[in-house]
């Protein structure tokens, strides 16, 4: 238990550091967001308006940095991430809440599927080394070396352009009203199929390769020979002895990849103009929408931290050696 508490303490500290950096970063960038807003308004803002904008963005010169910092924390804890420029005056938290589900559904789902499929294939490929299963290796090595955005472009050209079977952009048909009904869900799935398959093909190979390598390492362990000598069935030795041990590093890699779901597949969302958080970040950078960038960074950082914590917990569950005696 003390191990767990120490880990949680460590993550709390990291989260604090990340949030603090997130506070200072925009203040360190030359030119502040208000200046760029003024530039956009082309001098049509009065001094009063400018001053209230500064206060609105928490950049009030009359306030000390320390009190700004505490105010920032206060807003953060009440879920207030400021107002977005591009979607002015809607708050950043609303913009993120709109786009986050798209990314979670598309990338989250494909990450899980790709991990499960890839790991299973890796187990088989590692166990039956030296047989036809070796044919899998050149294929996966080739696939894992393809950049997924490039594969996405190819997929759009082949299947989406000029009356192809799949849409090339967006998250759902423009004519459909978002809601929990069949029309909308069907349309969303239809739109996500192509990007999902693209991610799946390129990311699965990594799991296959790493799982196969771990299987080969574990297969040389003494306890595998013991398991064979005990006359256990092939399946039991493969699953309960070899794969069970080979899985450990893959599981922690998987938990880390869960953290990258939120920000990791930016390019796929750009290629498919998918209304997820990566696409949002891309447009926010283009529009110099500092509050939105800041907010998305914060979400990405926190999700990576949470994923790390999950990785620790899962490891604790799977590997008895990490459990400390009470």
């Amino acid at each position: 238990m003390s191990y767990l508490l120490r880990r949680i303490g460590f993550y709390a500290f990291t989260a604090w550091a990340a949030i603090t950096i997130n506070f200072f970063l925009p203040r360190a960038i030359p030119g502040d967001p208000v200046q760029s807003l003024i530039a956009r308004a082309q001098g049509q803002l009065s001094t009063d308006a400018i001053q209230s904008l500064y206060i609105l963005f928490g950049l009030d010169d009359e306030q000390s940095l320390v009190s700004q910092y505490f105010e920032y924390w206060g807003q953060l804890l009440s879920g207030d991430l400021g107002l977005s420029f591009t979607f002015f005056p809607s708050p950043v938290s609303d913009v993120i809440a709109d786009s986050l589900p798209w990314t979670l559904a598309l990338v989250g789902f494909t990450t899980v599927i790709s991990f499960l499929l890839g790991t299973a294939l890796g187990v088989v490929a590692g166990w039956w080394r030296g047989t036809w299963a070796d044919l899998l290796m050149p294929v996966t090595t080739f696939l894992s070396s393809i950049p997924y955005f490039w594969l996405g472009l190819i997929a759009i050209t082949l299947f989406a352009d000029q009356g192809g079977a799949f849409p090339s952009s967006g998250g759902y048909d423009p004519g459909v009203v978002p809601g929990w009904d069949l029309d909308f869900i069907g349309s969303a799935i239809h739109h996500s199929l192509l990007p999902a398959i693209t991610i799946l093909i390129t990311s699965m190979s990594g799991w296959v390769l790493s799982m196969r390598n771990m299987m080969l390492t574990v297969a040389a362990e003494d306890y595998i020979t013991v398991a064979h000598a005990k006359g256990l069935s092939q399946r039991r030795v493969m699953v309960s002895y070899a794969a069970r041990n080979a899985l450990l590093p893959n599981v922690s890699a998987f938990a880390l990849s869960l953290g990258l779901i939120v920000g990791g597949t930016l390019l796929v969302e750009i290629v498919f103009s998918y209304p997820g958080i990566g696409f949002q970040l891309f447009s926010a950078v283009g529009a110099k929408d500092y509050p939105l960038i800041q907010g998305i960074f914060l979400i990405i950082t926190l999700s990576v931290l949470v994923a790390n914590l999950v990785a620790d917990l899962v490891y604790l569950l799977l590997d008895p050696r990490t459990r400390k005696e009470g």
Partner: peptide, 16 residues
């Protein structure tokens, strides 16, 4: 039955 060289690695670390 066999008792293997190296008691340390003959048991599967993840099972009781």
């Amino acid at each position: 039955a066999i008792v293997f060289q190296g008691a340390m690695n003959s048991l599967n670390p993840v099972h009781t």
